[in-house]
Design a protein around this nucleic acid. Structure first.
Lengths: 226, 226
DNA sequence: CGGATTGTTGAGCCCGATCAAGGCTGGTGG
DNA sequence: CCACCAGCCTTGATCGGGCTCAACAATCCG
């Protein structure tokens, strides 16, 4: 039976890491290559058609009739596409970079459930972010998540710094984080000026102080971390 | 293979109706009765322990270390509790009214997946609401969802009006909708003054113009609907 | 009755939206 | 080769929706 226990605060500040294996398995068809900004529209596909993103970046989003957009997730290599298929969840999937995907069939019921639970966990993390976090916290959380998904093996880097390719545009990030382009841009600028991140082109981002960024994502202020 | 299709705007304004049957099945244990405001803390339970809410109301929420709360869902009769169990999703479940729950075991893999997909769909609907909707739209959406879940069979009612018991407090609603108590209260007052809803006690709400409320939830303004 | 909890209402402020302008980059065609 | 254009990004100025702070009413319960 259910019991009453006092709630313990868990690390819910960040997006949960996927529990599905990143190592490709269950391949059952030829890989497909899609150019950036192409729409992989998933609505109406049979339930058993699932893909794994091998390389690249895909955004899942929903559109309101009046054009307002909410990005539900940004997927990096190893993540599953199409688990949610069937008509219960209607997301548009769009590539944000050259994307290589491979069909994955024959997942066991357990693997399927695990993938679905990951989606629930990430959707709830997004809800927490959208409902209760400030703009800086949202951007910091997003940067950490994307850095984890898109780290590129770097060399000659100072200890503790991480460099990654930021595939989504400022506009995509805004639609993901419930903000506007301008606010996202301003947050990036602030973090850059604060010495937490660096970027010459807007797409190549280096985390200079990952811990400080995590601190902000968890609710600390920027000036705190300076 | 995935194909490129133009996106059609679907009715994503409202919370999706659950696809799991509301009719009790798979009972496998004695029903349990819980008083209002008792915490059914689900973290750490074995995966196979699931419940169905027979009567009453339960809120699922997450807490940030600093105390900020995000309610992830409000469950009414027929909804499943514990589908998400395992350590991927950490929600606190709290009764908002006297709640009668019954253990449900032996769900088929398909039923389990359907329940999980419902959760994903509702979590994404919440993300859309939190990221892209105004306060009035959020409250209108919430009222419609709760009305659908908690309609009480009424008599002597004018056609088209719906009366229901609103179990969550203004504070619970605020934590669900990403607002403050004051804003929620003001939205209720505005809708009351606009003749869309009515309530004598804050907990017994009558929808006077459900269509107009749906119109607001979909993005229309209040003065539009007057 | 007094205290606690919840709901309502008002006044003022602030964070992030909106509006506007300009810079940078990449692609296309002359 | 450069001119032109279309996106994307940045930055500034201003606005406003919802938050904060505060006071008070209503209800419940001991």
């Amino acid at each position: 039976m259910l019991q009453s226990v006092s709630a313990t605060a868990l690390p819910l500040a960040a997006f949960p890491a996927p529990s599905v294996p990143v190592v490709p398995r269950h391949r059952s068809g030829p890989q497909e290559f899609h150019p950036p900004r192409s729409t992989l529209f998933l609505q109406g596909y049979a339930r058993d058609r699932q893909y794994r993103l091998v390389e690249g970046c895909v955004a899942l989003s929903q559109l309101l009739p009046d054009g307002r957009r909410q990005v539900m997730d940004i997927l990096g290599p190893g993540r599953m596409i199409g688990v949610w298929t069937s008509d219960t969840s209607r997301c548009t999937a769009e590539t944000l970079a050259y994307a290589l995907i491979e069909p994955v069939d024959g997942l066991s019921a357990g693997e399927n459930e695990a993938a679905l639970r990951d989606m629930v966990a990430r959707a709830q993390a997004l809800a927490m972010l959208l409902g209760r976090k400030t703009a800086m916290e949202r951007v910091a959380t997003a940067i950490l998540d994307l850095a984890a998904q898109f780290v590129r093996p770097t060399r000659n880097r100072r200890r503790g710094t991480v460099c990654f390719h930021l595939h989504p545009t400022r506009g995509d990030l805004a639609d993901w984080l419930g903000l506007t382009v301008e606010t996202v841009s301003r947050c990036f600028t602030r973090m850059k000026r604060a010495g937490l991140i660096d970027f010459q082109q807007p797409e190549i981002v280096t985390l200079l102080k990952p811990d400080a960024i995590a601190h902000i994502a968890a609710g600390g202020t920027v000036t705190d971390t300076l």
